[in-house]
Deep mutational scan, measured.
Amino acid sequence: SASLEDVKTAVLGLLVILQTKLYTLPASHATRVYEMLVSHIQLHYKHSYTLPIASSIRLQAFDFLLLLRADSLHRLGLPNKDGVVRFSPYCVCDYMEPERGSEKKTSGPLSPPTGPPGPAPAGPAVRLGSVPYSLLFRVLLQCLKQESDWKVLKLVLGRLPESLRYKVLIFTSPCSVDQLCSALCSMLSGPKTLERLRGAPEGF
């Protein structure tokens, strides 16, 4: 439990870093931090981490990651405290083949985003970082199938509809809506759902 406290501190630090690096160059920093966060949550489900502190780590990670939004130009952003989304000039939600690297070039400044813009690109060529939603999407499927803490599952179920409104997140990387529907149906009809959940409301 003591070591998990250190892990929790590290994860919180990564969330803060991602919130900053999403809007700064090099964009590969945001890509790497995002991948680290998603990989860490995957390990929770792989090794069945069920301690309360592990659940709190997942809760905080999902609470942040499910706020990711994308505009029509595929640029990622996060809402501010007033709910207004600021889109990044440097990070996009497109999935890119590994051989192309985590970044790609664009020939010049991008068109203005639909929300308040981030800082304008400084040079004639900007390297865009790929932060594909499919990585998070796979972890969300694991959550629906394996999550043991009701608070975490409730958060994910509550945030998913709003995330799905931003269709560009889903359609720019390999996210299977069929698998999502299947996971939701299995969660509702499967007898093991109630068996594994802690803290579920009576009558769920």
Rank of each mutant, 00 (worst) to 15 (best):
L140S: 05
C181S: 08
I17G: 01
K81I: 11
V139T: 06
W150E: 02
P52L: 02
Q19R: 14
H74L: 03
K167R: 10
V7I: 08
G199T: 08
G77Y: 04
P132R: 08
S189D: 10
L76R: 02
C143P: 00
L194W: 13
R159N: 05
V152E: 02
K151Y: 09
S28F: 08
P174I: 03
R198N: 09
I17H: 02
V156K: 00
L73H: 11
A2Q: 11
K8P: 06
A125H: 09
D94N: 07
Y23R: 04
Y166C: 14
V131S: 04
S88N: 02
G199E: 10
P26V: 02
K105Y: 14
Q179F: 05
K8S: 10
L160R: 00
D6F: 04
Q179R: 08
E202A: 12
V92Y: 09
A54F: 03
L153N: 00
L140Q: 02
Y133F: 11
E195V: 07
V16S: 15
P26Q: 04
V168L: 06
C143I: 01
G158W: 08
S48F: 11
E5H: 08
D6G: 03
S88M: 02
K104T: 15
T9W: 04
F137T: 04
A30G: 05
E147R: 00
E97S: 11
G13F: 00
P89K: 10
L43R: 15
S186I: 07
A70R: 02
M187D: 01
R69W: 01
L184K: 00
Q42I: 08
G129W: 07
G190M: 09
S55H: 07
I170Q: 04
G108A: 13
R196N: 10
I17R: 02
L141C: 07
L4N: 12
Y95R: 09
G101E: 13
K46Q: 11
V84Y: 12
K105M: 12
K154F: 04
C93S: 08
F87C: 04
V156N: 00
P116M: 14
L43M: 14
P113N: 13
S130F: 10
V7C: 06
P174K: 07
L14D: 01
Y90L: 05
T20L: 05
E97K: 10
F171I: 12
K105C: 14
F204Y: 05
P116F: 12
N80L: 08
S3Q: 13
Y166Q: 10
A125C: 15
D6M: 02
E99I: 14
R196W: 04
K154L: 04
D82N: 11
L144W: 00
L22W: 03
P174T: 06
T106C: 14
S176R: 09
L194E: 10
I170K: 03
A27H: 08
L140E: 01
L110Q: 15
Y95E: 12
V168Y: 06
R127W: 07
A10G: 08
V11Q: 02
Y166M: 08
Q146C: 12
G108K: 14
D6I: 01
Q146Y: 09
L160V: 04
S189T: 14
P52D: 09
Y34Q: 02
R58C: 00
A70Q: 02
G203V: 05
P117S: 05
P117W: 15
G13P: 00
P112S: 14
G101S: 14
R159A: 07
P113G: 11
V156C: 05
K145W: 14
K105L: 14
R69S: 06
R198M: 08
P117F: 10
V33H: 00
V177R: 01
S56I: 09
L25S: 14
K192Q: 14
S3W: 04
L78C: 11
V38I: 08
L136Y: 06
G101D: 15
L73M: 12
P109C: 12
R198C: 11
A10H: 00
Y166G: 06
L68M: 15
K81R: 12
Y49M: 03
S1M: 10
H40L: 00
K46F: 10
Y166I: 06
R127N: 09
L153I: 07
Y90P: 03
L169A: 06
I57L: 09
L180H: 00
L67E: 13
S39V: 07
L43H: 11
T31P: 09
K8D: 04
E103I: 15
P109A: 13
V92Q: 06
P79L: 07
C93I: 05
H74F: 04
V92C: 11
R159K: 10
P116N: 15
T193I: 13
Y49D: 02
E202N: 13
A183P: 01
D82K: 09
P79E: 09
S3C: 13
G129K: 07
A54W: 04
Y34P: 02
L67H: 15
S111K: 12
S148K: 08
G158D: 14
E202I: 10
S130A: 15
T20W: 04
L160T: 01
Y95F: 12
G118C: 12
R127I: 10
S176G: 06
S176W: 05
C185L: 09
V139S: 08
V84I: 13
A2M: 11
A10F: 00
M36Y: 01
P52R: 05
P191S: 12
H74C: 06
G108W: 12
G115N: 12
S182K: 08
G190T: 15
L136C: 08
Q146L: 10
R138K: 12
R58A: 00
I57S: 01
L22V: 07
A200Y: 14
L140M: 09
T193V: 13
L4F: 13
S102Y: 11
T24L: 11
L169Y: 03
R32K: 09
G13E: 00
S39Q: 13
S48T: 11
F171G: 08
A2W: 07
E147Q: 00
Q42Y: 10
S56H: 11
L155Q: 14
K46T: 14
E147A: 00
A30F: 08
H47R: 14
L169N: 05
G129F: 08
D149N: 07
P117A: 15
E103N: 13
H74V: 02
D6Q: 01
G83R: 07
E99C: 12
R138V: 07
P132A: 06
L76A: 12
T50Q: 11
R127T: 15
K145R: 09
L135Y: 13
P79F: 05
V85F: 15
Y90D: 04
L76F: 03
L68C: 04
A183D: 07
M36S: 10
S3E: 12
K46L: 09
V38T: 11
P174W: 04
L140C: 08
T9G: 06
L184I: 08
C181E: 04
P161T: 14
L67V: 08
E35W: 08
V7H: 01
V177A: 06
L37H: 00
I41A: 01
D149F: 01
L51D: 07
S173M: 02
P113Q: 13
S102G: 14
S39W: 11
G190Q: 14
I170M: 10
V11L: 05
S148D: 13
L37D: 01
V85L: 10
A200D: 06
L25C: 13
P201H: 09
D82L: 09
P116K: 14
F204G: 03
